[in-house]
Simulated assay, not measured.
Amino acid sequence: MDMASTGATATAHAFRTAVEERDTRAVEALLAEHVVFTSPVAFRPYEGKAITAAILRGVLRVFEDFRYVREIADPGGRDHALVFTATVNGKRIQGCDFLHVDDEGRIDDFTVMVRPLSAAQALAEAMGAQFDRIAAEAAGA
């Protein structure tokens, strides 16, 4: 295992811990300035640390009973998958955070996928209700 993949694993573990502890500052510190966030409920990716951090804070506000249940790593590389469960507006959701870590040990690509469709729709509604706050937080960053 090379230094880059070791650093990527450390970043993924630090991210998991920060999310589980709901430490939004630690989450934000792990994001690259140029991070690209691909949402399960938006057509286009979001680019940049400020909007990604604001979206993740919104997610932490709408997810109930959130927990990571599995971690999958590319042993020779910089990609990690963190499988999670949560509840959104009474719908049980299963999802996965796909993380890619850059040369500096920051998350530069972040894709989320969720299932089932009814839970993804509940997530879209809940996040839609948060979006004015998310946009304001990102603009103020």
Rank of each mutant, 00 (worst) to 15 (best):
E64W: 04
A10F: 12
T17G: 10
T6G: 13
R16Q: 13
S39W: 01
A29D: 01
C96G: 09
G76W: 09
A122V: 04
G77N: 06
M127F: 12
G58A: 03
G58T: 06
I134S: 00
A138N: 06
A12P: 08
S39K: 04
A26W: 01
F110Q: 00
F110C: 03
V36A: 05
F66N: 04
R115A: 13
L56C: 03
M113P: 11
E104A: 14
S39R: 04
F66Y: 03
G105M: 03
R61K: 11
V59W: 02
T111R: 11
A124P: 00
E64I: 01
V112R: 00
D97H: 07
A135H: 14
F37H: 11
Q121P: 05
R67G: 12
V88D: 08
D65R: 05
E125Q: 13
F110I: 00
F37T: 08
E47S: 09
D79H: 06
L31K: 03
A14M: 10
V69P: 04
L117A: 12
H34I: 14
G77F: 00
T24S: 12
G48D: 07
S39Q: 02
V114H: 04
S39C: 09
D109R: 09
V88Q: 02
L56F: 04
E137T: 14
R115S: 14
A10H: 07
A138K: 02
V36Q: 03
S118A: 02
N89R: 08
T9K: 11
L60Q: 11
A73M: 05
D74S: 15
N89W: 04
G140P: 11
E104D: 15
I72V: 10
K49P: 03
N89A: 06
V41G: 07
D132W: 11
T6A: 14
G105L: 06
I107T: 03
E47F: 14
A42Q: 13
V35K: 00
